[in-house]
């Protein structure tokens, strides 16, 4: 189990680093809503960052309910995905990054997505942070493990 733990954490980190995009789920009055976003994760796996303009539906949803889920996966859309693909769903709460933490978060985010520099520096764009509570990690199609992040 100790070995499993190290392996899962390593695989999870690798997955989060390798994928530029993820699906973010928000909701408003019970209506789920999914969006594709560019994301970056902290090396301790506690935080995931994404950027959005403030006029988006997802941003409005977050204002109403900060609980989110985010799906990251490495599928190649081939038969072999059932063997090799890994998917991780992170649950937690999201909010805009505080001004005094923004610089560090921006560095992290832009080191992964340098081409989004203009976008994130736009006055209308919000950099958001998800504080992760749990990762639900799926491998081999239906093997599921929960990784709980302690706060």
């Amino acid at each position: 189990m100790e070995k499993d733990f190290t392996k899962i954490k390593r695989d999870l980190k690798k997955l989060l680093q390798s994928q530029p995009l993820a699906v973010l789920a928000t909701q408003s009055r019970g209506q789920p809503y999914a969006s594709l976003v560019a994301f970056a994760s902290s090396s301790d796996l506690r935080s995931i960052y994404f950027a959005t303009t403030r006029s988006t539906r997802k941003y409005a949803n977050l204002a109403g309910d900060s609980r989110v889920a985010m799906l990251v996966d490495n599928r190649s859309n081939k038969a072999s995905d059932f063997r090799w693909a890994m998917a991780a769903t992170a649950t937690g709460t999201a909010k805009e990054v505080d001004p005094d933490e923004k610089e560090v978060a921006l560095d992290l985010y832009l080191s992964k997505h340098p081409h989004l520099k203009e976008f994130v520096h736009s006055p209308t764009c919000a950099l958001c942070e998800i504080r992760v509570q749990t990762f639900f990690v799926v491998t081999r199609f239906q093997h599921v493990v929960e990784v709980h992040v302690k706060t």
């Binding site: 899962i8 301790d44 081999r140 199609f141 239906q142 599921v144 493990v145 929960e146 990784v147 709980h148």
Partner: peptide, 12 residues
Amino acid sequence: RRAFSLKSRQIV
């Protein structure tokens, strides 16, 4: 473990 804990959710 201090920061994380691991729990099996669905086993095949």
